[in-house]
C-alpha cells in the first residue's frame, strides 16, 4: 500500500519535473527568439531603436504645436476632409456588403448537409482559404494598374478578402446550426433556396451580422491604409499632406483626429450592437 503510494508520488513528481523542464526549455527558446528577433529587426532598420527612442515624441509635438498655432483652421479642415472620410467609409461599407453577400453563398455551398454539390465542398473551402490569404494590398495595387486610381480598386480588393474571411466564419456558424428545420422544409417540398432562407438564415442571422459588423470595423482601417498606399479616401489625403511636410501639419492632425474619432465611434456602436445581437440582452 505504502509502496504503491510512494511510487505514485514519485511518478507524479517525475511528471511535474518533466513538465517544468519542457516549459523551461520552451521559455528559454521563446526568450532567445524574441531577443534575437528584436536585434535582427533593429539591425535591418534604417534607424536604431535606442537612437530613435528619444525622438519618438518629436513628430507628434511638431504636428500638434503647429496645429495648436493654427487651431482656427481645424473646423474648416474637418469639413474639407469630410468627403474623403465618407469615401473611406463607403469603401468599407460596400466591400463589407458585397463580401458578406459572396461569403453567404460560399458558406452555404460549403456547409455539410446543406451544400448543393456536396462533392465540391473542399473546392469552395479552398477558394475561401485563398481569398483570405491574399492581402488586400496585392489585389488593390494590381487593380490600380488596370482601373486607374479611385475607390473602386480598394473596394474590390477589400471585398474579395472579406469574402474569404467572412466565408470561413459564416460556414463555422452554419455548420453548428440545427438541421431539423431544413429537413422539415424539405419534407414539405421546399426547394434549396427556400430551405436556406427559412431554415438556416433565421438561425444564423444574429451571429452572421455580428461577424459582418466586426469586419466592417476592420475594413475601415484597411480602406484607410489602402488609400495611403494607392487609391482614394482619406488615406490618400494623409499621404499628400505628409509629403508636403512642414506647414501642412494642421491638415495631418485634422486627418488623424477624424480617423481616430470615426474608428472610436464605429467601434463603440458596433461593440454594443454585437453584444445585443449575440447575447440578446441590452448592454
Amino acid at each position: 500500500m505504502t509502496d504503491a503510494r510512494a511510487s505514485l508520488t514519485a511518478d507524479y513528481l517525475g511528471q511535474v519535473k518533466r513538465k517544468r523542464l519542457y516549459g523551461g526549455i520552451l521559455l528559454i527558446l521563446f526568450a532567445a527568439l524574441m531577443t534575437s528577433g528584436w536585434m535582427v529587426a533593429d539591425g535591418r532598420n534604417a534607424g536604431g531603436f535606442w537612437s530613435g527612442l528619444h525622438r519618438i515624441l518629436d513628430f507628434p509635438t511638431e504636428i500638434l504645436s503647429e496645429a495648436a498655432q493654427n487651431w482656427r483652421n481645424l473646423p474648416g479642415l474637418f469639413i474639407h476632409y469630410l468627403p474623403s472620410l465618407v469615401e473611406t467609409l463607403n469603401i468599407a461599407a460596400v466591400s463589407t456588403l458585397f463580401g458578406a453577400g459572396l461569403a453567404t453563398v460560399l458558406a452555404m455551398l460549403s456547409t455539410r448537409g446543406l451544400a448543393l454539390w456536396p462533392r465540391l465542398i473542399p473546392v469552395f473551402r479552398r477558394m475561401m482559404d485563398i481569398l483570405r490569404a491574399v492581402p488586400e494590398i496585392v489585389i488593390a495595387l494590381v487593380l490600380i494598374f488596370i482601373l486607374g486610381g479611385g475607390p473602386v480598386p480598394a473596394m474590390i480588393a477589400i471585398a474579395l478578402h472579406t469574402t474569404g474571411a467572412l466565408g470561413k466564419l459564416f460556414s463555422e456558424v452554419s455548420e453548428n446550426c440545427d438541421i431539423k428545420p431544413v429537413e422539415g422544409l424539405e419534407s414539405v417540398g421546399a426547394n434549396w433556396l427556400q430551405r436556406v432562407w427559412f431554415g438556416i438564415i433565421p438561425q444564423v442571422a444574429p451571429n452572421w451580422s455580428s461577424y459582418a459588423l466586426l469586419r466592417f470595423e476592420i475594413n475601415i482601417r484597411a480602406s484607410a491604409i489602402l488609400g495611403f498606399v494607392g487609391s482614394g479616401g482619406i488615406g490618400y489625403d494623409l499621404k499628400t499632406s505628409l509629403q508636403w511636410g512642414l506647414g501642412k501639419y494642421d491638415e495631418v492632425v485634422a486627418i488623424f483626429l477624424l480617423l481616430f474619432v470615426t474608428i472610436m465611434i464605429v467601434d463603440h456602436f458596433s461593440d454594443r450592437a454585437r453584444a445585443r445581437l449575440v447575447k440578446g440582452g441590452r448592454v
Partner: peptide, 18 residues
C-alpha cells in the same frame, strides 16, 4: 489606427522591420 502608428513611428525610427 495602424496607419497612424506607422507614420509616427517611422519618423522616429526610420523605415524598416523594427
Amino acid at each position: 489606427d495602424g496607419l497612424i502608428w506607422t507614420v509616427i513611428l517611422s519618423r522616429a525610427f526610420g523605415p524598416g522591420p523594427l
